[in-house]
Amino acid sequence: MVGIRKVQHRKFITVLVVLALITAGLAAWWYIESKRDDILVLATTTSTYDSGLLDEIVPDFEETYGVRVKTIAMGTGQALELGRNGDADVILVHAPEREEEFVEEGYGKYRYEVMYNEFVLVGPEDDPAGVRGSQDVSEAFNRLYENRGSITFCSRGDDSGTHIKEIELWEDAGFDHDEIDSQAHSHWYKSLGQGMGDTLRTANELDGYALTDEATYISLKEEVSGLDIHFSGDQELFNQYGVIPVCENMNPNVNNELGEEFASWIVSEEVQDMIDNYIIDGEKIFTANAQI
């Protein structure tokens, strides 16, 4: 009995010791983390990351350069914001206009084109808006609008690269996107504020149309089997990815050297081949198109 009590007696102290050890562990961890020389922070978009491409190719960069890459997948806006704040060293996103802006503002050093995939317009199998057979994407969007009484359109609504592209396409087709967005109360245009996968799933449930990148659609094909591709192939629908090393002038902590090495690496012939050969379910996801 006495022995047992003595053990209990020490529990209080044990808890304190454990706490102290954790704190010490954290301090050590922090010390290691604070040496950022061999760590590259890559900010990219969820759609890029979710395709699985980076998990496939990034280990090659880590091995070749003997560094670690921290890949952070966020919305396009957030990824660019990370770069502006100096929290990322290199950015891989797909919103060309915004990327140019980023470089012009002096946050990015330069921009290389890396690859593209295609946006496609998906919708319920029977295509109630009759988008199939449209001459170009403008016509397809016009047909959507004409049939707004009987269809649903699901928009990302999250300021992502895809959402930005969708806005452009509405404007190019001669509509005022703000006005369409304000028709949300009429229920045909749904601004979801969700990621690509969730948007496709919602469209599938609601028998709605959606603009999606082909990669995400292919990877989710099984789940959203009620959706078919009704329009694709227009030059306007190419989804161009760019890589930008963040400028060290803006923030001295940015690992610009590694960032530039990453940019050169991803546009190298070898890696471009890897991108071209990345296949999911028998379909090619990205087309490499770097011009060096």
């Binding site: 961890w29 922090w30 952070i72 704040n85 929290d87 923030n251 902590n253």
Partner: peptide
């Protein structure tokens, strides 16, 4: 964040 008051600690994303 690097721009934030404790940015120099490099604790972000750890």
């Amino acid at each position: 964040s690097q721009r934030g008051p404790l940015g120099s600690l490099n604790l972000l994303f750890t």
